[in-house]
Each structure stands twice: as C-alpha cells, then as structure tokens.
Amino acid sequence: MTTLTFFLLASLLLLAIGLAGLITRRTLVGMLISVELMLNGAGLSIVAAYKSTAASDVLGQLATLFVMGLAAAEATLVLAMILVVHRRFGKVTTKEISLLR
C-alpha cells in the first residue's frame, strides 16, 4: 500500500458515489450533480497518478485543468438542455421526456 493507492481509492469512491447517484436520481438536475462528482474523481486520480510517480507533473496538472474546463462547458450545455426540456415538457424527470419528436 502506497500513498498513491490511498488517493486512487478516494477517487474510486467518488466514481462509485457518482454512479449510484446517476442511477437513483430521477431528474436531470440530480443527474448533473452526480456527473460532476464523477468528473471530480477523474481529476483527482489524474493528479495523484502524475504527482506521486516519476511522470511529468506539468502534464498531470494541465490534464486536470482541461477536465475542469470540460466540466464547465458540460454544465453550461446541460443547463441549456434542462431549460429547453422544462419549457417543452414542463418537467425534467427522465420518465416524462421519452418522446423524441
């Protein structure tokens, strides 16, 4: 057991909690929260792997910065989609929005 293992297990916890939330949440907003949890776990695992081995520190930190930027872009788009779905269906539960046209 090294320190890297501890950090990787912590990010695995984030992934598992986010996946469980993605399954159990009914609304798109709750699912967005769970996805953010999983993205955080990904960033943490990248930084831990690059910082505590001989790999380049700069590459790891920049990769996590890119993950953060992608998460921000994704949250923006999902907010717009939630607005459209809410205007169209009046609800944002996943059961209601099964109509494609």
Partner: peptide
C-alpha cells in the same frame, strides 16, 4: 452501481499497489 466499481476497480488498484516506485 455503488458496489460494482468498488468491487471491480478496487481490487485492481490494491493488487497493482507498489509495482511502480512512488515518490512524495
């Protein structure tokens, strides 16, 4: 969904611990 990643990836992480040199 909570237990599946813990049960699949967790043992992998623990099995591969210490295979590469780790630094502070």
């Amino acid at each position: 969904a909570l237990l599946a990643p813990l049960g699949v990836i967790g043992p992998l992480i623990i099995m591969h611990a210490g295979k590469i040199p780790v630094q502070v």
